[in-house]
Amino acid sequence: MQRIEEADNNKDGVLIVNKPSGMTSHDLVNITRKLYNLKKIGHTGTLDPDAKGVMILALGRATKFIRFFSDTDKTYIAEILFGQETDTYDSSGKIIKEQKPDFTRSSFRSCLTSFVGETLQRPPIYSALKKEGKRYYEYARMGTKIDIPKRPVKIFDIKILEETIPFSAIIQVKCSSGTYIRSLCHDIGSSLKTCACMGNLERIAVGNISIDQAYDISTLKKMNMDQRKKILLPVDRLLMSYHCAKSNSRGDHFIQNGNALLQWNSAMPFDSYQDGELLKIYNSENRFIGIGQFRQSENGIFPIRMV
């Protein structure tokens, strides 16, 4: 299994977990709390209970930076089952429509191509999105119909891994954050003038974090506490998309005491930074110490969230 970079030998850091199917994201967090004997654990994004794959957990002080984790691309392997539509858009839901699929391999491939790019997608009603403070799935369980607006998403790439046309197919999808693969499968069926729902789903990557860097729960349970600590990644692993600023020894004192960092080292010219841009801050010893905001008028970096 590939190791990226080890964090300090404590319980503050980032853990990459391979969530099994049949487990909620909340259950996964609770199990990890017990394994690390730690209350402060959060995640950067859920997976449906029936789905498996990469989940990023923040432990200890790393939870302070979850809100700065920028939306990032996801990669999934999904099974499309043709001939049935369900209320949840996946095979675990109630069948609400059946139609014998009748389309060619050529039309299927052409259909997939039409979904690549920017598009508007309607999320399934059985989702955790909110309307007037209530989750969509709560409306669904009450039998209340609501208007679900479409949202912009982007599909970067779709590859066919297996196909038994016109009955089923397995595809690999790279997409923007917020894309519902269940909706994609449903919409592919509609485009082919038939019904479809999603079968198995696995998330194999979140940004540049892939499934081969993730630990199974069974592996974590076999480890002792020292081993579990050593596999945690540095807190700034959550912040890969941010530019960096490195303080000097004089600046260390100011920024750690909540004052602006007015002198720092940078790999980029100062005029390359955008006014209001958030930056990762490292001290003079090259240790990550927090997130700051660049203000052009003062030509300084002001602390937003410190370790």
Rank of each mutant, 00 (worst) to 15 (best):
R287Y: 13
G45L: 11
G178R: 05
K246L: 10
L184R: 06
Y242G: 04
L279E: 06
I255W: 15
S25Y: 11
Y180F: 05
Y180K: 00
R237P: 00
N283W: 10
K11H: 12
T113F: 02
R182A: 02
Q293F: 04
R3A: 10
I56G: 07
R305F: 14
Y36R: 02
E138L: 12
A245M: 14
S107P: 01
D27F: 05
I231M: 08
R67I: 02
Q274G: 11
K229E: 14
I181F: 11
K34M: 13
I4T: 05
S106C: 09
E6S: 14
I148T: 03
S218A: 08
M240H: 12
P152Y: 14
R109M: 11
M23H: 07
S210E: 10
D73R: 01
R67Q: 14
I31W: 15
R305Q: 15
D90Y: 04
D212Y: 03
L233M: 10
M23A: 03
L261R: 07
S247Y: 15
L278C: 04
C185Y: 08
T164E: 11
Y126F: 09
M142K: 14
I77G: 09
S247W: 15
E163P: 00
T63H: 11
L59R: 01
S190Y: 14
F65K: 00
S241I: 02
R67C: 06
L81H: 09
I77Y: 11
Y137I: 00
G300H: 02
S110D: 06
G189K: 02
